[in-house]
């Protein structure tokens, strides 16, 4: 959490990141940028999935449908926030010559997506049958 607050300060004072360490090889920065973009696409896919659940599963009960949609949208928002946070932390670590930050976010996201997928299968199969 303390790390998150620290990187949050960097978001709004971007010139500070240039003050630390040395500029790394541009190729490392570009690779970091592509990783950031891949996370943004994951976030966009989750947001799109949330929109799609609301529109293409109209047979579900309102509460279930809205609950699933909002869960996916919330996951998308978290994913986008994490994308920019992780990008800035990696950029800073490269400037300082430190190890890249590790994170348990990928594991948490995978488990969340798996749970939502199983819930959707159950809802669609039993929703149709019942």
């Amino acid at each position: 959490m303390r790390q998150f607050v620290q990187s949050l300060r960097l978001w709004f004072a971007p010139q500070r990141i240039g003050d630390e360490g040395e500029t790394p090889d541009y190729r490392f920065s570009l690779a970091n940028e592509r990783t950031f973009l891949a996370w943004i696409r994951t976030a966009l896919a989750l947001v799109g999935g949330g929109f799609a659940v609301d529109q293409f599963l109209p047979d579900l009960r309102w509460a279930v449908r809205v609950g699933l949609s909002l869960a996916l949208l919330a996951a998308g928002v978290l994913c986008a926030l994490r994308a920019v946070n992780h990008w800035i932390r990696c950029e800073r670590a490269m400037r300082r010559g430190e190890d890249l930050p590790v994170s348990r976010f990928p594991a948490v996201l995978s488990l969340t997506v798996a749970v939502v997928a199983v819930a959707m299968v159950v809802l669609v199969v039993f929703g149709r049958a019942g």
Partner: peptide, 27 residues
């Protein structure tokens, strides 16, 4: 090329989050 600016990264993220929030309000 120069490093991606923090402003651009935050703006791209902000657009993504704002789309999600708009959708949530409509849903």
């Amino acid at each position: 090329p120069r490093v991606l600016s923090v402003r651009a990264a935050v703006l791209a993220t902000g657009c993504t989050i704002a789309l999600a929030v708009c959708g949530a309000v409509l849903i």
